[in-house]
Amino acid sequence: MNAGPGGGGAEAASRETRDRAALGERPRPAVHGYRWVYLWHWPIRAMHWLAFGSIVVLALTGFYIGRPYFMTGTGNATSYAMGWMRFLHFAAAGVFVATGIVRLYWLFAGNKFERLPALFPLRGRDLGNLWRMVKKYLMIRPERAPHYLGHNPLQQLSYTLVYLVGAFMVVTGFALYGLSNPEGFFYDAFGWVRELLGGAQGVRFWHHVMTWFFVIFFPIHVYLAIRADVTELDGSLSSIVSGGKFVREDLEFEDE
């Protein structure tokens, strides 16, 4: 698990080669003092960017649906602005749900950084590390922060929260979608959501409010990613494009 720089590196390298071969990727050039580790398979990366795109569309169209911030037409109903907004919203929701399905599948098919256990900081040491990560960002003894190849416990928690909020949005979204056809599948299948949240208005309220979670999450996420990239100089920012990052050969990693 927590092998030393030498043996662990070799093991990682062989796995890396295997993964690369499996996904038809080119080998990376070596840089002095660093090694390249492969973390995110392309389905994860595709999921990330598709989810990002769909969330942008969902939030923009969602806010329009919530409060139409521009008006059309001066005469009778000749445009279809709200209609298109809703169409885009539903279409983007379809993409978002698809990414969710991919992610669900990859919880079982992915590598150890992607699999279900990687979502939860459950090992005894993780909790201590979680606290040390929090302290790091509070700039309290940052040098004590642990090193992870994949997601550190704080990231695990926050990304798992993103998944849960995403699932909440999907469920509440379908509950609202179902209202237009009480004899349809979605009306019945998501009736429990309305019951749970105090009727359609409650569902609408929470679906709307939780959109802000993504809006708030966005700057924090981007900042921390850039920050890690700048401070660690490990290319973690590009890992979500290329799939891997450079790590210093002399560091130990909690999740290696």
Partner: peptide, 22 residues
Amino acid sequence: YGARIHDQCSRRANFDAGQFVK
């Protein structure tokens, strides 16, 4: 009570068109 007001509303076309009373 089998259908929603919103889906039977005479002003639904204005909703779809993005035409709202402010």
